[in-house]
Design a binder for these strands. Sequence first.
DNA 1: GCTGATAATCAGTTATGCTGACGAAATGCC
DNA 2: GGCATTTCGTCAGCATAACTGATTATCAGC
Lengths: 138, 138
Amino acid sequence: MPSPPLGFLLSTLASALRENTEKQLADLGLTPREYGLLWRLADGPLSQRQLGELHRIDRTTVVGLLDRLEVARLVDRTVDATDRRRHAVSITDAGRTLLESATAVVDEASSSFTAALTTAERSTLLRLLVKLLEGSQP
Amino acid sequence: MPSPPLGFLLSTLASALRENTEKQLADLGLTPREYGLLWRLADGPLSQRQLGELHRIDRTTVVGLLDRLEVARLVDRTVDATDRRRHAVSITDAGRTLLESATAVVDEASSSFTAALTTAERSTLLRLLVKLLEGSQP
DNA sequence: GCTGATAATCAGTTATGCTGACGAAATGCC
DNA sequence: GGCATTTCGTCAGCATAACTGATTATCAGC
């Protein structure tokens, strides 16, 4: 039997892992996608457009996601001084604190998800996926 | 910078590859998900429930997908002789013919998607993803 | 200054998946 | 054999999510 198509593997595995992660994150009041945004913002502020492109989220959807995160005081929207059209989205201290707890449960979920792999295989997989991502969004 | 969360990598890459594949498959009148079902059925008939579980598609969604494929004469639904509640879903000759053409464009899409990887890396990646899938749905 | 392009937002539409119910058929229990 | 329970596929309705197009504010080029 030939290997399943790459697209099938990626989307099925993504769906399975998301199901696990979703339940754990729900206790913290976060969705996986919101967690992803917080994780991204930990490296520094980004515009909404940049956030959307990096995470493949439509610009209009980003608005709603950030609305919710902002009301929860997890992120801030400030007008970018160098380009007043842009919003510089940054993570708050409360956001960082929640991100820490969330990262613990996300790591736990993905560890158990990759239990069938050895440690070496797991890091190889991550390395290849990162390489793939860098190749697809240069 | 630490590696992105596994879930983010999987879902982002799945989304990016799907976007590429979608356009190519549209010329053949197939969605990526429909292609996945045809690919699966090439190995032999399955019940709708089995199809849904293997592809992580809700049972009620499977109904609609198969409706469309059946109208297009790509699959057949026959009552399973050993369990008359079940439908044995099988691929038709026309379905196999289309599957061949579709596989060509899907392979092409995933090859170009993995252009940043060496041949060895590409097969390692596939091997690890398959191992992960087998571990998550035993 | 004007023109065209870009960032964020909003309203409205569209697609999508899921919930709960149903009939038909199988299984288990007595 | 007869009855309750479970499973399979189906359907209608609901909820959610994403996208389309338009709008406002701002910027860059000429």
